[in-house]
């Protein structure tokens, strides 16, 4: 399905990133919100874009530095004596 974009739809798309990041003035935000309340496709693009970012952030937050990689890093930097135990290693 291809959404035929009118002027306001183009405005939303052009401002989408700054709208998501909270970088727009109140008046522009209100205009975009008002447009989305009557334009299902634009609301959908906004919702799915924010959800896309959220999913990548959630997965990234789970990324840890593997213990062996951390150990080799401190070894390469000759900082072995200053390596702190990670919480997991500390608990075990």
């Amino acid at each position: 399905m291809i959404h035929e974009h009118g002027l306001e739809c183009r405005d939303l798309l052009g401002n989408l990133s700054e709208f998501i990041d909270g970088g727009l003035d109140d008046e522009t935000c209100e205009k975009l919100r008002s447009h989305m309340s009557g334009c299902e496709n634009c609301r959908l693009v906004f919702d799915t874009t924010t959800r896309t970012i959220y999913l990548y952030q959630t997965v990234a937050n789970e990324t840890a530095l593997p213990e062996d990689v951390r150990g080799r890093l401190f070894n390469t930097l000759k900082l072995d004596d200053l390596i702190k135990p990670t919480r997991r290693a500390h608990e075990s």
Binding site: L44, T48, L55
Partner: peptide, 24 residues
């Protein structure tokens, strides 16, 4: 600037478990 969204499925209501399972 002329990039147009084509996929307009509303998948945001899928359970988080589905959105973050191994396949996803």
């Amino acid at each position: 600037d002329s990039f147009q969204p084509h996929e307009l499925a509303d998948w945001t209501k899928l359970p988080e478990g589905d959105l973050l399972d191994v396949e996803a």
